[in-house]
Design a protein around this nucleic acid. Structure first.
Lengths: 346, 346
DNA sequence: ACGCACTCCGTAAACGTTTACGACTGTAGG
DNA sequence: CCTACAGTCGTAAACGTTTACGGAGTGCGT
């Protein structure tokens, strides 16, 4: 089966009518429509997407921009796949496809994004790995391309995003540790260039103040959010003169490296140092002692992202209530053994 | 910038010449080409992909068919992302994009595939999760769509695939265990409907025979390849009258559940039962005692898949030597503590 | 002066759809 | 009998490219 033209010839009907019949237009006889649908089914006709895209100016494809460096892959655990799965659950309802757009590491992400958008290969974009000031946001806003970001940024006052509840996590983590008698609480975070690094530490600082504790910059450990970074963090912690009694990790995966380094020095997590993790990394679930951490459903996050994006697209707006510009995603505390002890005054 | 037409007008040049200049055709003055490229850069013109696809009949998109059930996601660890990353490394060299095609769980995978192919939205396909007899293979072969499978199948005599070295793994695992004095060796595998389940057990059977050991069907534990399946497997193992002294797992993730169940009954892996795992699952790397297992680079596998696929596509054939139809992917043994003991005769 | 080859470029026809527009019925209302 | 209108359908023009074809100009050898 070549195209709609052959199908029309076969039915001895005009090509326009066939198209209308297939697309459910009202101005076609029901009897004719039945015949067309039957013939299409029988001959295995499916409309060519390129032709359709060209005419309608929409491709039915949503782009997902990802970072695909070897490092990113190693650290991703199933975050990416989990979110993707949720996204697709939403998209398949509307026959939308998901295109992965990995920015080459030697190219500027914004330029790459511009090229992909200019090619008109996607109707909308999902971007992640937000920078504190992210030019992609400005570009997409100006170009009026529907998009959603996973993560905040300071760019362009108002744009749709969903971000994890860093404030809540930092607040609850500090509160929990303070309740167990801790006074010197360390925290790990990526560079403050990455927006995540900035927001997380700020929330931590505020939480400390609320409990009347001083903010000590030397307790902010800037390392990569990876197993390796966890090892590094532990190393730096152990070097501090007035060693903290607790540490908050920005990514659970770090706990693995952290544990390892601590053990090497005979420091036992959950007895000598309280540890709280953040964001679910399956492979950190089996640590001994078990890690106290904040968790969430990646799948649900994907669904929320998908629905919020579609609410911003004219063609699908009706299906979803545009629940405001953005959203803070809640996390649930899973209590483990890594911070289960009460600190006795020295 | 709308299209090539505006660009041509702006240059006071015909649209055909502009196209030729941009596409590096020889029959255009170098001076003209420079002007065109400069103007395109300045005005931010990028060719519309739909128009181009329509004309040339190729979309520059490779489809990747995946299973995206919640269960599959939970069990995937970073297998999927790792392979994808390798694929993209190859594809971006040729400006190809990767489209994820998740088959809805309520639809027949082959029908879904047919629809996607008929829409002409992909130039080639990558399929995985192979069935023992897989209709997708027959369809793609007959339709002459370039494709590659990750995993074998019995369908259609000759088609391109890469599969993990099950034979080698089963053989080496058995050999290793026999050398440590084991005589009753259990194995886990998925249903023999899935081709993987069939091949793995067959290799295990042959390896046993080579060492003069009997094949006992009750030692083949058919469970899901997941943490839960591992738990289940341990449960069944413990119920056996003549309990085996060793077990080979088809997926490392299973070790987590297996360990848990064993511990519950006071059976210590690496002392009371030898365990060998297969296929890298990062989250199983931190088990105590450490797991002996077979590993591989997911990234490299992705690269190999990508290159083998491109070697089968006319447009890219020249870049890659078509290294025969298919390939067995080797794995490397990483010795751990879980099988490090010598069995003493009872 | 002529033919020929070569370089460069313009014209127009595809590729497969969707859709605005108008044409043609038949029916109802005046 | 004329008009209005609803229900169907055919016609043709887009959408943005690429590319086969041919033409114009130039240089060169005869």
């Amino acid at each position: 089966m070549k195209g709609i033209r052959q199908l029309a010839e076969h039915l001895a009907i005009s090509i326009g009518t066939v198209s209308r019949a297939l697309n459910g237009r009202p101005d076609v006889n029901e009897e004719t429509r039945r015949r067309v649908l039957a013939a299409a089914e029988a001959l295995g006709y499916v409309a060519n997407q390129s032709g359709r895209s060209l005419r309608q100016g929409e491709t039915k494809v949503i782009g997902l921009m990802i970072e695909s460096s070897a490092e990113a892959v190693e650290n991703a655990d199933n975050f990416f796949l989990g979110v993707t799965s949720g996204l697709q659950h939403v998209f398949t309802r509307h026959k939308l496809d998901l295109l992965m757009l990995p920015c080459p590491s030697d190219e500027d992400p914004c330029e790459y994004l511009k090229r992909m958008v200019a090619r008109r290969v996607v109707d909308a974009m999902i971007i992640s790995n937000m920078q504190r000031v992210d030019r992609r946001v400005d570009f997409l806003s100006r170009a009026r391309i529907p998009f959603i970001a996973v993560g905040r940024s300071l760019s362009a006052g108002n744009f749709p995003w969903i971000d994890l509840d860093f404030e809540g996590v930092a607040e609850r983590a500090v509160e929990r540790l303070v309740a167990r008698g801790h006074r010197r609480i360390a925290i790990t975070a990526p560079s403050s260039e990455v927006n995540l690094g900035y927001v997380f530490v700020e929330s931590y600082r505020r939480a400390l103040e609320q409990h009347g504790l001083p903010f000590d910059p030397s307790l902010v450990i800037r390392v990569k959010s990876s197993e390796q970074g966890g090892y590094q963090a532990a190393h730096e912690l152990l070097l501090l003169e007035d060693r903290p009694t607790a540490v908050i990790l920005i990514y659970e995966l770090m706990a693995i490296g952290l544990y390892r380094r601590l053990m090497e020095s005979g420091v036992l997590p959950g007895r000598d140092l309280a540890v709280i993790g953040f964001r679910d990394a399956p492979r950190a679930r089996f640590l001994q002692p078990s890690l106290s951490c904040f968790r969430m459903s990646l799948y649900d996050l994907g669904v929320a992202l998908g629905e919020m994006l579609l609410a911003r697209m004219p063609a699908y707006r009706d299906f979803y209530s545009d629940a405001g510009g953005n959203m803070i995603w809640p996390l649930e505390l899973v209590a483990g053994e890594s911070d289960a002890f009460q600190l006795t005054e020295a």
